[in-house]
Nucleic acid binder design. Structure first.
Ligand code: MN
Ligand code: MN
Ligand code: ZN
Ligand code: ZN
Lengths: 141, 141
DNA sequence: TGACAGATGCAAATGGTTCGCAATAGCATC
DNA sequence: GATGCTATTGCGAACCATTTGCATCTGTCA
């Protein structure tokens, strides 16, 4: 089974387990999310969904995104361009570098940084629930 | 001269140097910003400004904030609560830990993390222009 | 197949922020 | 200190991403 199909299945199970109806628009949106490998915003997801089924509405895209986010199935990011961007939450945690010139989003992960963050929070008497590390950068010339 | 006064002076010089008029509303807003030690949003700054001079408008608060941000005199943050928050840019760079229960913002700085970030970017062929590190955390029980 | 609660599309509302515009007020000059 | 030009102001309307109310549809399970 392809990764895309696996992701779709995971979404489907998630909703089913929560007793949430698997409607036609939701199926379409799940499919779109499962096959996304970038960090699309709601508009982009809506466009991809409409390409599959023209009757899907932007409202339902937003409602489904919220639903999946609440269940932890997808993650919402707020990069500096205003719109919220989404990606599915499988795979290991990573942070992002945003190319200021192209808008390209590059993923990276540093265990050292993750560890240091936890240490800092601990010293302050806190446990990190989630965090955000975004590097806005320009290609070295 | 107090830190507050120093900050106000720096703001004043910045604007003067750029040939920007030092109007009454701007003076009030500069004063408010200079004396802020937290991370207030536009509404909060507006409230503080109005307490000094009731004729100041929210529009002018926003316009002045943009002006100062463009000159690098203040910094804009976008924590997860939607509104933009501001703080003056003197002092050394730091990042933020946000207490999810109280909303309290705690500042910290880790040279190690700063260094690691630069290394990661360099490996990817990038120079960091700015970055955002926010830890959303809960007090350890 | 029927019933009913949950889900949908549409349009209108929201909330933070920006903008257009006519009126006002810095500031350089006299 | 008065004058003139222009930047700046307050106000309300516009913006834009996202959310919501509502009448209508549709999964789901009996
Ligand atoms: Mn990612
Ligand atoms: Mn700070
Ligand atoms: Zn991370
Ligand atoms: Zn930092």
């Amino acid at each position: 089974m392809s990764d895309e199909k696996k992701r779709f299945e995971r979404f489907r199970q998630d909703l089913k387990a929560a007793g949430i109806r698997l409607t036609e628009p939701r199926k379409v949106i799940l499919r779109v999310l499962a096959s996304a490998s970038d960090h699309p915003d709601a508009q982009a997801l809506y466009a991809r969904a409409v390409a599959i089924d023209a009757s899907v509405s932007l409202s339902t895209v937003y409602r489904t995104l919220k639903l999946l986010e609440e269940r932890g199935a997808i993650q919402r990011h707020a990069f500096d361009d205003g719109r919220a961007r989404f990606e599915n939450s499988d795979g290991e945690h990573h942070d992002h570098l945003i190319d200021l010139d192209t808008g390209q989003v590059i993923e990276f992960r540093s265990d050292k940084i993750e560890r240091l963050q936890a240490e800092i929070a601990a010293e302050l008497g806190y446990d990190i629930i989630r965090h955000k590390l975004e590097l806005y950068a320009r290609r070295r010339s």
